[in-house]
Design a binder for these strands. Structure first.
Lengths: 216, 216
DNA sequence: CTCTCATGGGTAGCAACACTATCCATAGTG
DNA sequence: CACTATGGATAGTGTTGCTACCCATGAGAG
């Protein structure tokens, strides 16, 4: 197919497709002449993936390029490779500089959970930054809450990894992992909000009704 | 204190403070003359809160204004008010239009969990959008995974609401809830990444080591 | 009281980001 | 053979979150 059909099928405007081609996040089609190229189903799939990562996952274009390039790069074991892909996905817009105190809490936390971790992993930095952010905002997180979160999150990570492993090629595993991580972050945020609504309703809804009854 | 000291204590440059004043997300100081005003500790606190919401939570400035304005607005019961504050916090950059199928799955999901919900709540739309995103990206989420996520998230929401309720004034409760929701989204993402690393290590690290041993 | 520098307030400018629009030589198509 | 579509490049646009500059006024040092 040519660009018009690709645009049609993926639901992405032609100028945007050209932009992605320029940026190297969508591979060029197979050239069939000086100014013609043929695109395939994999281009449609890639475009839809990019759109989802950008709009739903909120990933910057440059990161999409890095992540997809890393996925395509062959070699190494699955855990190692997965780790490399994950490192590309940004976690926090660093501007807040964590104190030593925050870094120590981050380390103590993972140690307390008995989690396997790398001391210099960006996610560890990010944890320190987030703890610092809470503290600076005047709403610090206490260790007890952190530990209760951790117990729940372990379940989540188990689900995350469960279905991914049995895909045929390691490139498919990596793409699925990247997509499910990025989109899963958003999914997760949404589910948390829904669960909060439920929890808040269970705790305070009666109260509110009594209150508005009193106000009548 | 005057602006220089405020800037110093909050760690925010003077031009940025002026910008926040213009945008109405930082209240004006008490005027002491035609071009003088006095700022207090509450301004320092507010500035730090704004910085955390923007840099760690990734909230747009306009949303910060809306959220803080909503928190300051008095009246109504706590659940109702909390709901109004939460509605201000954006969940997804809508560009993907969910299919009927996605909306139905979203509704079926909350019904299956027995969660209290509002059919037209932005979080319900967001869930449909996220499900659509996964599907369009070629990595749909199955109901079984969704349900397992839900079980874990219920725990999280319980922790979220546990410590907030016993603050003295309802404005404090609301600010805390808003801050912990926004910053908590980021915290959560980071914890998930750390838990994924642990889970991936537990599953694949041995494999990787054997593999690199074979490659020696 | 005067000199100097800081302040509040406003307007304009800037860098990054994610597209869009325009242009042009060439290809495919009726 | 006319005429639209294509690939490729270069330039422009709108939004966001600041940053720089300007100016009249005010505070504080000497």
């Amino acid at each position: 197919m040519r660009i018009a059909e690709l645009s049609e099928r993926a639901g992405v405007p032609i100028p945007t497709i050209k932009y992605y081609l320029r940026e190297g996040i969508l591979p060029r089609g197979e050239p069939t002449g000086r100014n013609q190229a043929r695109y395939g189903a994999e281009h449609v799939h890639r475009l839809r993936l990019i759109r989802a990562l950008v709009t739903v996952g909120g990933l910057p274009i440059t990161t999409v390029r890095e992540v997809l390039a890393e996925v395509a790069e062959p070699g190494l074991g699955l855990h190692t490779k997965l780790g490399l892909v994950m490192r590309r996905i940004p976690l926090v817009g660093t501007d807040i500089e964590p104190e030593e105190e925050d870094r120590e809490r981050a380390l103590a936390f993972v140690a307390r959970q008995g989690w396997f971790f790398y001391e210099d992993h960006p996610a560890m930095d990010a944890l320190a930054v987030v703890l610092a952010g809470h503290r600076e905002a005047g709403h610090p997180v206490d260790d007890a809450s952190l530990d209760r979160y951790a117990a729940a999150i372990e379940q989540v990570a188990r689900v995350d990894l469960d279905r991914v492993g049995d895909l045929p090629t390691s490139e498919e595993v990596l793409e699925a992992a990247a997509a499910k991580t990025v989109l899963g972050d958003t999914l997760f945020t949404v589910l948390r909000r829904l669960a909060q609504i439920d929890e808040s309703a269970k705790r305070y809804l009666d109260e509110d009704e009594h209150r508005s009854a009193r106000e009548d």
